[in-house]
């Protein structure tokens, strides 16, 4: 008798805290979902994740907890999710680094194209080509001429090997067929500080970090790396308008699940992502970041899968030509 009551108590106590066993897709999600961000808390990717996680959690009726698993350019967090149970309770939100690390790292602990199922694209944050406020060239054309004429003098800052600012710089240099002096920093924060202080000449960074500085007149912008002008920076031309077609880079973000997640769960997650991307608060915050939610067609498994494989193919030659690897 006593054993039974103890057992009942234990069962009751544990049952309130969590649920064990494979949750049927029908009652998914039955407990909080963990969304892994492969970067430290407070960065732009973390911000995007928290915004989306909150909105998706509201829609799913379960909290989505953001877990920061930083390290090794995002590959540690991605590796963690690749090995996680495909039960829909561990997801990954990663940016363009998902595609570039496939080339930047010669030995990855996971197979980028085959280790994940896809939920959908979230957003594509544009980048801007900027320079210190008192830098001579006035527009992109004169900048290119100036850079070619003074290639020993112009310094280009980036946020370290594999960072978006590094990729953007590599693409710029390959487009204008000129190699500039690259000054690497640990993260965009210190790089931006030195740009503001006039210690370096130019850099390329996402609108999240540059919009306010450009509007405040602390740095000058030559072009955005997008097809259309950015809504928050209407006066800045696109690279194509300014005379450098094909100079397009965006920091796109996607949500992934471990390979083997059931189609029903994936469908639920995709639907929830689509709802979240229509949330007025998310749209407004994204606009503040200088970006917009992905379209309904992109915020799908196929949309993300196509983006990932095309981006892998696109960056591999650029990275290989530069001969830069992160390991």
């Amino acid at each position: 008798m006593r054993r039974t009551s103890v057992r009942t108590f234990v069962v009751a106590a544990f049952a309130t805290a969590f649920v064990i066993g494979p949750a049927a897709a029908a009652d998914y999600p039955a407990r909080p979902i963990t969304m892994v961000v492969p970067f430290s808390a407070g960065g732009p990717t973390d911000t995007v994740t928290r915004l989306v996680a909150e909105a998706m959690g509201k829609d799913l009726g379960q909290q989505i907890v953001v877990e920061n698993v930083g390290g090794a350019g995002g590959t540690l967090g991605a590796g963690r999710v690749a090995k996680a149970d495909p039960d829909g309770y561990t997801l990954l939100l990663h940016h363009i680094g998902m595609a570039t690390s496939a080339t930047l790292y010669r030995k990855l602990p996971y197979d980028t194209l085959n280790a994940f199922d896809y939920v959908g694209l979230v957003t594509d944050v544009p980048m801007t080509l900027v320079a210190r406020a008192d830098f001579e060239p006035t527009d992109l054309k004169s900048l290119i001429e100036y850079a070619k004429a003074n290639k020993d003098k112009v310094t280009y800052a980036n946020a370290g090997v594999g960072a978006a600012s590094h990729l953007c710089g590599m693409l710029f240099m390959s487009k204008i067929e000129t190699v500039l002096t690259t000054v690497p920093y640990k993260g965009t924060g210190p790089a931006m500080t030195d740009l503001l202080g006039g210690q370096v000449d130019m850099m390329c960074d996402q609108t999240t970090n540059t919009t306010n500085q450009i509007k405040g007149g602390k740095i000058k912008a030559y072009a955005t790396t997008t097809k259309q002008r950015v809504a928050s920076l209407p006066d800045v031309p696109t690279a194509e308008e300014a005379g450098l077609p094909g100079f397009e880079v965006g920091i796109w973000h996607g949500i992934y699940a471990p390979k083997g997640t059931s189609p029903e769960v994936l469908a639920k997650l995709t639907a929830s992502l689509q709802t979240a991307l229509k949330d007025p608060n998310v749209i407004k915050r994204f606009a503040d970041l200088g970006t917009a939610p992905s379209s309904e067609a992109e915020a799908t498994p196929d949309g993300l899968k196509a983006k990932l494989s095309s981006e892998i193919d696109r960056w591999a030659p650029v990275i290989k030509a530069a001969g830069v690897y992160a390991d």
Binding site: G42, T47, R50, T193, N212, Q213, G216, R285, D288
Partner: peptide, 27 residues
């Protein structure tokens, strides 16, 4: 004044500001 984090704590504060819809920076 610049929107630049001097340490990891400030990076978190900037993240919090962005989530709140405040663009850290000179403005």
């Amino acid at each position: 004044t610049l929107g630049i984090p001097a340490n990891p704590v400030m990076a978190l504060m900037i993240g919090a500001m962005i989530i709140q819809g405040v663009q850290p920076g000179p403005n």
